[in-house]
Each structure stands twice: as structure tokens, then as C-alpha cells.
């Protein structure tokens, strides 16, 4: 091995690391012991490595990053039983879609707002996996933002005051569009296996061409659910209740909407 060959190998040598026992460097390191010029070059290489390493190691980590990472993990954690529910729901959905696709002469897919509302009603009535259990609306908004779902919505004050938020689902979509789903408990006795009886769905107002254009609510039944729908800004809201009527839903709507 020549000195130049040894330099080529040793330029990747990192002093103070496992490279000292890496066989790839053994011969070149040994040659250093016998070649003064190579030894001098190697000494300079080690000093230069240490100097540059110290500059990289000086990169300052922002304060609070560790705490933020840990806090986010808490937000994202989903208990195993919920994962099982989500999985079961996903499997059921796939089976249902496959079944529908196999049916001859299946009606064309509907794109109108009634179809959207029906779908959300059936989702609330059926089995969905709560992705975040939380009684904190700020935490829920953060969760939606992290999941790239809709997070710039306004929860009516009456809904906040008269119902208890229990969680949310961020991965709901309607024909490729995100829908944020917030689950509430109205205070009535809850059904077994479902802590919610009131759901707020938030979508973009372009979710359907005939989506409501006004902040005054439209009341309709959707898959057995009582619903109120309205639009404020570029967001369209559907509030669905497992049981009840316009008067019941009115308790949770913004003041100006209350009938």
C-alpha cells in the first residue's frame, strides 16, 4: 500500500469512533506508524475532522421540541381496541363497496348534497372508529390540522355549551374531499357501545353543487338521523342527531339560527 492509497482510505476515518476497529482501516492505520509524512497528514486529518464535527454539533435544537414531540404522540395514540374497531369498520366498508360494485345495474353514484348528508348520517349511525378521544376542542382542531383535514371551522357556541365533545374522526372523505367529524354527547342516555349521539360534519362548501349557501339551517331526515345543514364562509356544516327534531337540534345551533 502506498501513502496515497492510505490517504484515500483514511480520509474517511473518524477518530473516536468504531472506525478504530474497522478492518477496512487497519492496514492504513498500521502504515501511519511507519511513515512520518503519512502520520503527519493523518494527524492533520484527525484535527480537521474534530474541528468540522464540532461545527455540526453546534447546531442548536429549538427549545421545546422534545416536549412538542411527546405531546403530539399523546394526541395521536389510539388504544388497541379502537384500532380493532377501525380495522373492522374498514373491512366492512371494503366488503360493502365490493358488494355494491358487483351488483348488476347499480345506480350511478350520486353527487348531490342529499347524498352527502345521507352518507354522513349513515356513518354516524353505523360503526366508525373514533380516531381521537378528547374533550378538548383545541386538541381536536390540532388533530385535524395534523391529519390535513379541515381545521378552520367554527363550532357553534350553543353546541359547545349544551353538548359535551368526546372525540373526532379525521379521515372521513366524501368523493375524495375531506370531511372533519366531531362527536358529541348531548346529555341523553348513551347507546351501548357508542358514546356519541350528536355529530358535526364539516366539509368544504364545494362538497356538492347544491350545498346550502346560507347560514340559515335546512332541516332534513337522513338515514333516520335528524340533520341541520348550513354554510358559513367556505365551510358547510351538517349537524346530525340520533334522535330528535328541529327543536332538539336548535339547542345546538348558533344563536341567530335558533328557531
Amino acid at each position: 500500500m502506498t501513502n496515497n492509497q492510505a490517504k484515500e482510505i483514511l480520509q474517511l476515518y473518524r477518530p473516536g469512533t468504531a472506525d478504530a476497529v474497522d478492518p477496512a482501516f487497519t492496514d492504513a492505520l498500521e502504515l501511519c506508524e511507519h511513515e512520518p509524512e503519512l502520520k503527519k497528514w493523518f494527524g492533520n486529518h484527525c484535527a480537521l475532522y474534530a474541528a468540522l464535527r464540532s461545527k455540526f454539533k453546534q447546531i442548536a435544537v429549538p427549545e421545546g421540541l422534545k416536549e412538542q414531540i411527546i405531546a403530539e404522540r399523546r394526541v395521536h395514540t389510539t388504544p388497541m381496541w379502537q384500532k380493532a374497531v377501525i380495522l373492522a369498520g374498514a373491512v366492512a366498508a371494503v366488503v360493502m363497496v365490493a358488494f355494491k360494485l358487483m351488483q348488476p345495474g347499480a345506480p350511478p353514484e350520486r353527487h348531490d348534497f342529499a347524498a352527502y348528508r345521507d352518507y354522513m348520517g349513515s356513518m354516524a349511525a353505523g360503526s366508525y372508529g373514533m380516531e381521537l378521544n378528547s374533550t378538548d376542542l383545541d386538541q381536536i382542531r390540532l388533530f385535524f390540522a395534523q391529519k390535513n383535514s379541515i381545521a378552520d371551522y367554527v363550532v357553534p357556541d350553543n353546541l359547545k355549551a349544551n353538548a359535551k365533545v368526546v372525540g373526532c374522526v379525521a379521515t372521513t372523505t366524501w368523493q375524495g374531499k375531506h370531511v372533519s367529524m366531531i362527536c358529541f354527547q348531548s346529555g341523553r342516555p348513551s347507546r351501548p357501545g357508542n358514546p356519541s349521539d350528536l355529530w358535526l360534519f364539516i366539509s368544504d362548501r364545494t362538497v356538492a353543487k347544491d350545498a346550502p349557501v346560507a347560514s340559515n339551517p335546512t332541516f332534513e331526515k337522513a338515514n333516520g338521523m335528524a340533520t341541520a345543514s348550513w354554510t358559513v364562509g367556505n365551510r358547510t356544516y351538517v349537524l346530525a342527531a340520533a334522535e330528535g327534531d328541529e327543536q332538539f337540534l336548535g339547542k345546538f345551533l348558533p344563536e341567530k339560527m335558533v328557531l
Partner: peptide
């Protein structure tokens, strides 16, 4: 294979190296 001395590097700060 340039000739850069450790002393030169020591005069730099981390952002310059990055």
C-alpha cells in the same frame, strides 16, 4: 483533495459550515 487547516475551520461558525 484541498488543503484546509483545522485552524481555518476553528475560525468559522456553525452557520458558515452549513
Amino acid at each position: 483533495l484541498p488543503t484546509l487547516s483545522p485552524a481555518t475551520v476553528n475560525q468559522l461558525d456553525s452557520p458558515q459550515v452549513l
